[in-house]
Design a protein around this nucleic acid. Structure first.
Lengths: 153, 153
DNA sequence: TCATTAGTTCATAATTTGCAGAACTAAATT
DNA sequence: AATTTAGTTCTGCAAATTATGAACTAATGA
């Protein structure tokens, strides 16, 4: 398993991106490696050796990614190794997560409006606008996704 | 500065939300307090005392939020205190951040496609689909925002 | 039956982070 | 001139996070 300079730095960049999404550093690197490697499926030892992380860290990372549905594995008859790969169905989930997150934010902001009693309602208007904006987005996004599906056919 | 139970727990919930967006706990609580408090503008000491955080943590949090444009302050003649408030123009930024983040991801994924040479191109299709989906979203979102603006008039 | 493979689990070490407290500054007030 | 106000900066600690290495297991193979 040798990787080009570009692959190595993409693993790091993607790793940092995923750290910001709440993944542990090593876990994020494993995702990066599975994403950029020329082979789609890698073994435990491929991953451990290529990324220079211990077996325990590798085990922990792979199990976490399996549990959260980010990766999966196949096996081959007469071969005890597991071959890990990114679960491609999960790409769309990255997008959905962001949208759900905005929905969560919107819920919080609606509660803020119920709870606080501002003597000066100027600031209320802005926040209400934003809430309505998020509501609008939430309604329209499914349509947008459908439209995109149509362009593919 | 007394807060209701609901206000206190909203500060915590919003705080956790913002921690997940990469803010330090104390910084996230300051945002939460400025968001839910009945008064729109609070002083250094209001914040420090209400949240029970030290002056250094308060100073640090306020300066970070000022630097990142999340809050601003006014002053009043003959009063040395600063009165901090959430920068309401920044609501929309919360949304933009999520979108920029997806754009960043898309950039990384495009580089992945350039760099990796898969013998088995089945997985390439899925990733290319996702890239094209993100491109589509990025193009259409400004229109969606415009549409929303129209509904307001 | 002994060794190897493919991992897992556990205790512990190494960082990182987040915050407090004390000492400090600079302006305003007494 | 001394004190108060409104913060800022610096040092260091405590807790949390992350990774390691060693010991373990369970299955396979020689």
């Amino acid at each position: 398993m040798t990787l080009s300079e570009q692959q190595l730095s993409l693993i790091e960049e993607f790793g940092i991106y995923q750290e910001n999404n709440g993944f542990q550093p090593a876990v994020a690197r494993v995702m990066g490696l599975l994403l950029v490697s020329d082979r789609a499926e890698l073994t435990f030892d491929d991953i451990s050796e290529t990324l220079n992380i211990s077996k325990s860290a590798t085990s922990n990372a792979l199990n976490m990614l399996l549990n959260t549905g980010h990766i999966e594995y196949t096996t081959f008859p007469g071969d005890r190794k597991r071959y890990f790969r990114i679960k491609s169905s999960n790409w769309r989930d990255l997008f959905s997560k962001k949208m759900e997150d905005l929905s969560h934010l919107n819920g919080l902001l609606k509660r803020v409006m119920e709870v606080r009693k501002r003597e000066n309602p100027i600031y209320d208007t802005k926040l209400n606008d934003f809430i309505s904006f998020l509501d609008y987005m939430k309604n329209k996004l499914p349509d947008l996704i459908d439209e995109w599906e149509m362009t593919r056919k």
